[in-house]
Amino acid sequence: MKKLIFIVTLLLLGCSQDSETMTGAQTPEQVSLGFFKAIYVDRDVEQAKQYVDEPMQKVLSHYYIASAVQRHVLNLSMTNVTMEIEEIDIDFFRKFTDDVTVIVKMQGVRGSENWVDDRTIRLHKVKKQWVIVEILPEKGNLN
């Protein structure tokens, strides 16, 4: 009887996990936060390239250093940055879509002021991997 309960428990736990997590593929949320962490926290453009498609990799390579990417690609130079996912346009149908939009809320210091801002990015699923394909123009800041 104990073996039966153990087997049923394993089956239930196995079925409840997301297939993306089981295969090791990152979610859109993880890719988005990984990219911004690489640029704003680790300040490592090479690390950030793993999260973007080839055209964006070329843009990042052109600017070469994280501060230039912040200034020219993201239009937001900040230090002491913390970030979180503000919104994602998919949830239940994640397995059936190949294109998502994620809004990342960032808090940090800009100049000498505390600053809060959002950045919206578009991700596309390529060979079961989510990659950032576009940084959308911003409507304004939340300061």
Score class of each variant (00 low, 15 high):
residue 1 M to I: 04
residue 2 K to N: 10
residue 3 K to D: 13
residue 4 L to S: 05
residue 4 L to I: 10
residue 4 L to F: 08
residue 5 I to V: 15
residue 5 I to T: 08
residue 5 I to Q: 09
residue 7 I to Y: 01
residue 7 I to M: 12
residue 8 V to M: 14
residue 8 V to W: 02
residue 9 T to G: 07
residue 11 L to S: 11
residue 11 L to A: 15
residue 11 L to P: 00
residue 11 L to W: 07
residue 16 S to Q: 10
residue 16 S to H: 04
residue 17 Q to V: 15
residue 18 D to R: 09
residue 19 S to K: 08
residue 21 T to A: 13
residue 22 M to A: 08
residue 24 G to V: 08
residue 24 G to K: 05
residue 24 G to E: 07
residue 24 G to D: 14
residue 27 T to G: 06
residue 30 Q to V: 10
residue 30 Q to C: 03
residue 32 S to W: 05
residue 34 G to T: 04
residue 36 F to C: 06
residue 38 A to D: 11
residue 38 A to V: 02
residue 39 I to M: 01
residue 39 I to P: 00
residue 39 I to R: 00
residue 40 Y to M: 05
residue 45 V to Q: 03
residue 46 E to P: 01
residue 47 Q to R: 14
residue 48 A to S: 11
residue 48 A to K: 01
residue 49 K to T: 05
residue 49 K to W: 02
residue 53 D to H: 02
residue 53 D to T: 13
residue 54 E to N: 05
residue 54 E to L: 08
residue 55 P to C: 14
residue 57 Q to V: 06
residue 60 L to A: 11
residue 61 S to P: 01
residue 65 I to N: 10
residue 66 A to V: 12
residue 66 A to E: 03
residue 68 A to M: 07
residue 69 V to W: 03
residue 69 V to R: 00
residue 72 H to V: 09
residue 73 V to N: 02
residue 73 V to M: 12
residue 74 L to F: 07
residue 74 L to S: 05
residue 75 N to H: 11
residue 75 N to P: 00
residue 78 M to G: 11
residue 79 T to V: 08
residue 80 N to R: 09
residue 80 N to M: 10
residue 80 N to I: 04
residue 81 V to M: 14
residue 82 T to A: 11
residue 82 T to C: 09
residue 83 M to E: 11
residue 85 I to Y: 05
residue 88 I to P: 00
residue 89 D to H: 06
residue 89 D to P: 03
residue 90 I to D: 02
residue 92 F to K: 13
residue 92 F to N: 11
residue 93 F to D: 15
residue 94 R to V: 14
residue 95 K to D: 12
residue 96 F to G: 11
residue 96 F to D: 14
residue 97 T to I: 07
residue 97 T to R: 09
residue 97 T to M: 07
residue 97 T to D: 13
residue 98 D to E: 12
residue 101 T to F: 03
residue 102 V to R: 00
residue 104 V to L: 02
residue 105 K to I: 02
residue 106 M to Y: 02
residue 108 G to K: 05
residue 109 V to L: 08
residue 109 V to Y: 03
residue 109 V to F: 02
residue 110 R to Y: 04
residue 113 E to S: 13
residue 114 N to I: 04
residue 115 W to H: 14
residue 117 D to K: 13
residue 123 L to Q: 14
residue 123 L to M: 12
residue 123 L to E: 15
residue 123 L to I: 11
residue 125 K to W: 01
residue 127 K to W: 04
residue 128 K to E: 14
residue 128 K to Q: 15
residue 130 W to S: 01
residue 130 W to I: 07
residue 132 I to H: 00
residue 133 V to E: 06
residue 134 E to M: 04
residue 135 I to L: 14
residue 136 L to W: 01
residue 137 P to H: 06
residue 138 E to C: 01
residue 139 K to T: 15
residue 142 L to T: 11
residue 143 N to G: 03
